[in-house]
Simulated scan of single mutants.
Amino acid sequence: MPAMHYTLRWPDASETTAYSPSLIIQDYFEPGRAYRLDDFAQRLQAATAIANERVQAKFGFVCSRANDQQATLLARIAQFAPQPEAEVTVLAFGPAD
Score class of each variant (00 low, 15 high):
Leu8His: 06
Leu8Tyr: 03
Leu8Met: 08
Leu8Gly: 05
Leu8Ser: 04
Leu8Arg: 05
Arg9Asn: 04
Arg9Tyr: 00
Arg9Leu: 01
Arg9Gln: 13
Arg9Met: 11
Trp10Asp: 01
Trp10Tyr: 10
Asp12Trp: 05
Asp12Gln: 08
Asp12Leu: 11
Asp12Gly: 09
Asp12Ala: 09
Asp12Pro: 10
Asp12Phe: 07
Ala13Leu: 14
Ala13Trp: 06
Ala13Phe: 09
Ser14Pro: 05
Ser14Glu: 12
Ser14Asn: 13
Ser14Ile: 01
Glu15Ile: 10
Glu15Met: 14
Glu15Tyr: 05
Glu15Pro: 10
Glu15Asn: 10
Thr17Trp: 07
Thr17Arg: 15
Thr17Phe: 00
Ala18Gly: 09
Ala18Met: 07
Ala18Cys: 13
Ala18Asp: 05
Ser20Pro: 05
Ser20Lys: 11
Ser20Glu: 02
Ser20Gln: 07
Pro21Arg: 11
Pro21Gly: 13
Ser22Leu: 01
Ser22Asn: 11
Leu23Ile: 03
Leu23Trp: 00
Leu23Ser: 12
Leu23Arg: 14
Leu23His: 10
Leu23Phe: 02
Ile24Ser: 10
Ile24Val: 15
Ile25Arg: 13
Ile25Trp: 02
Ile25Tyr: 08
Ile25Ala: 14
Ile25Pro: 07
Gln26Ala: 13
Gln26Tyr: 02
Gln26Asn: 10
Gln26Glu: 14
Asp27Leu: 12
Asp27Gln: 15
Asp27Val: 05
Asp27Trp: 03
Tyr28Leu: 07
Tyr28Ala: 11
Tyr28Gly: 06
Tyr28Lys: 12
Phe29His: 11
Phe29Arg: 11
Glu30Val: 14
Glu30Ile: 13
Glu30Gln: 15
Pro31Gly: 09
Pro31Trp: 03
Pro31His: 03
Pro31Glu: 02
Pro31Lys: 12
Pro31Gln: 03
Pro31Ser: 06
Pro31Leu: 08
Arg33Lys: 15
Arg33Gln: 09
Arg33Ala: 07
Arg33Pro: 00
Ala34Glu: 10
Ala34Gly: 11
Tyr35Pro: 04
Tyr35Phe: 06
Arg36Cys: 00
Arg36Pro: 00
Leu37Arg: 08
Leu37Glu: 02
Leu37Val: 02
Asp38Cys: 08
Asp38Ser: 13
Asp39Glu: 13
Phe40Thr: 01
Ala41Met: 08
Ala41Gln: 09
Ala41Cys: 09
Ala41Asp: 09
Gln42Ile: 03
Gln42His: 09
Gln42Thr: 04
Arg43Ile: 00
Arg43Val: 00
Arg43Cys: 09
Arg43Phe: 08
Leu44Phe: 05
Leu44Trp: 03
Leu44Thr: 06
Gln45Ser: 13
Gln45Val: 03
Ala46Trp: 01
Ala46Glu: 11
Ala46Val: 00
Ala46Ser: 13
Ala47Ile: 04
Ala47Leu: 04
Ala47Asn: 04
Ala47Tyr: 01
Ala47Phe: 02
Thr48Val: 13
Thr48Lys: 11
Thr48His: 08
Ala49Lys: 14
Ala49Ser: 12
Ile50Leu: 15
Ile50Pro: 07
Ile50Cys: 10
Ala51Cys: 04
Ala51Asn: 05
Asn52Met: 04
Asn52Ala: 06
Asn52Ile: 01
Glu53Met: 12
Arg54Lys: 13
Arg54Thr: 04
Arg54His: 02
Arg54Ser: 03
Val55Gly: 05
Gln56Cys: 04
Gln56Glu: 12
Gln56Met: 13
Gln56Trp: 06
Gln56Val: 00
Gln56Tyr: 08
Ala57His: 14
Ala57Asn: 14
Ala57Ile: 01
Ala57Lys: 15
Ala57Trp: 05
